[in-house]
Design a protein around this nucleic acid. Sequence first.
DNA 1: TATTGTTATACTCTATAACTATA
DNA 2: TATAGTTATAGAGTATAACAATA
Lengths: 153, 153
Amino acid sequence: MSTRETNTSDDPVLGSAGYLLVKAGVHMGMEFEAAMRNLGLSMRELLVLSFVAGSDRLSQQELSDRIGLDPTLIVGLVDGLEERELVVREKDPGDRRRNVLSVTKAGRNLRDRAITAATNVEDDFLAPLDERERADLRDTLYRMMSPRLPWLQ
Amino acid sequence: MSTRETNTSDDPVLGSAGYLLVKAGVHMGMEFEAAMRNLGLSMRELLVLSFVAGSDRLSQQELSDRIGLDPTLIVGLVDGLEERELVVREKDPGDRRRNVLSVTKAGRNLRDRAITAATNVEDDFLAPLDERERADLRDTLYRMMSPRLPWLQ
DNA sequence: TATTGTTATACTCTATAACTATA
DNA sequence: TATAGTTATAGAGTATAACAATA
């Protein structure tokens, strides 16, 4: 198994910002997922806890828009969190079709621990960068994604 | 369907570099995929063409390492490309277990068109950034991913 | 009639194990 | 006995369509 010679870092695809961005996203996602698994959570479940905690009286439809998942997938996600009493569904009195979601005390506690774990993963992933470069990266990504994530005001 | 108030841009998860990186990777990947579909290719197939074109006498195992896919998935990928006569499999005379891959003339032509399409997608995606910021982003991602992608010398 | 949430089903994708041919 | 490539199969994940309740 010789390490074969390659010219990839200057390949117009393999060395591009775009491909590196996709790859970085996949790797970071897998590490987030692994960290969440230690807490009995999935990345998606942390996202649900985050969106619901950060919003007022969010419905499943609105959550579906923000999280970027089909409403039929939200059902099972919320089912699992509700069974563990991390979130609560309530019928909206003003429109009884809507389920208004909220995070329980236990949900907030678990979310706090998940945030710590996720932050550690991120710190590790961004270790090659100094403070200034991390801030620049975050700012750059924010500007790139703002047009595509309307809930990012 | 009121737009509900949210505090997400400063949420420790939703506003973090890590989550934005995952999201950006997913979105860019979907747009790459859509652009490739117009050429009758998938993103993975372009990656195969790129790795094989950029390496000398690459085997399927080595391709599996670089592309980050199980060897059993490489079989079908190469099958599809070989049927369309975009790549060729040859038994390595020095070790007849190995399939040595190479890109055909037609494969190089299609790859050139795919590179143009991918570059356009990337340009569009990075439109909010000026030239300097794009170069910085590419450099930052390169440094972040180098430890995790050994073939990126 | 349209929308929210839900269920069921079919489809795609992937991981696993087992096989062959070579070493 | 180990490795490269291949095949088959089972499981996970997802998209689609259809339905009940409410507007």
